[in-house]
């Protein structure tokens, strides 16, 4: 079983799509490209806006490991960290027309597991299941 792992560093959210493109190509995960792109875009935006306070001088580290049909992602920011990250189970009627607040919910929808360990968001996605979309 071949294990692929790597780490990239980015500043701000400016080059997010290029980095995600490179990762999807490296891991040959084109079949799951939409899901992975959405998960990572949301996690990196969250790290930049909340963990790094929107400061593009602060780095964000993205680590990824593909092993035995599971993609494990870690997105680390420079913030103090948080425990018990509140991720909504649904978008309530009250929040329906908010301009923000859907990112973590979408990560939960498209990933199999997500949790915050200090200042690192850890995300797991089963990519052994075929995706036809």
């Amino acid at each position: 079983m071949r294990i692929l792992q790597s780490e990239v560093k980015l500043y701000g959210a400016e080059h997010t799509q290029r980095i995600i493109d490179g990762m999807i190509a490296e891991l040959d995960l084109h079949e799951h490209a939409f899901d992975i792109r959405l998960i990572l875009a949301e996690a990196i935006t969250n790290a930049h806006m909340h963990g790094n306070g929107g400061d593009s001088a602060k780095p964000i580290l993205v680590r990824y490991v593909l092993d035995a049909g599971w993609l494990e992602l870690q997105v680390e920011d420079c913030g103090p960290g948080i425990t018990g990250l509140p991720i909504p189970n649904e978008i309530s009627d009250d929040a329906l027309l908010n301009d923000r607040g859907r990112g973590l919910f979408l990560i939960r929808c498209f990933a199999d597991r997500v949790e915050m360990r200090g200042n690192i968001m850890c995300i797991s996605k089963n990519i052994s299941i075929s995706h036809t979309a």
Partner: peptide, 13 residues
């Protein structure tokens, strides 16, 4: 071909 929560927020606003 792709939209995220930032895009959704802009559509809502």
């Amino acid at each position: 071909r792709f939209i995220d929560s930032t895009g959704l927020g802009v559509i809502v606003s």
